[in-house]
Design a protein around this nucleic acid. Sequence first.
DNA 1: TACATGACTCTTA
DNA 2: ATAAGAGCCATGT
Length: 104
Amino acid sequence: MYELIFEIVRLVPKGRVTSYGAIAEALGMRSGARLVGYAMNLSHNVYPEVPAHRVVNSAGLLTGKFHFGTPDKMQQLLEKEGVVVKNDKVVSFKELFWNPKNEL
DNA sequence: TACATGACTCTTA
DNA sequence: ATAAGAGCCATGT
C-alpha cells in the first residue's frame, strides 16, 4: 500500500519539496496525511531509496528530521540539493512546492 | 475483533 | 496570532 506513496515521493524533482497532505490527496486519501508520515517511517529500508527529506508538513517544516539518524541530516540533504532551510523550515516553500497531481 | 500509534491538518477558543 | 482538540487511515499487537 505504501508503494504508491513511495513512488510519488520518488517523483519529486531534485531541489523541490512536497507535503504529506499533498501526497495523501494525490492518492485519494483526503485526510491520510498521518498515514503518509507513517509510510515515510518505513521508507528507510525500501529500495530504490526514497527521498523522504523532500517531504515536509503543510507549513514547510522539517518535522521528520529526527528520523534521519541525526537531526541535521535532512537539512543537509535539502541544502545540498539547492533547497534553503532556515530554522527547520523550507524557505520559499510555496515556490519550491511540488504538486504530485501535476505529474498524474 | 478491538485498541493504540504516528514524519499530519484543519477547526475552534 | 497562538494554543488546544478532534478527525483520519493503515499497521501491529
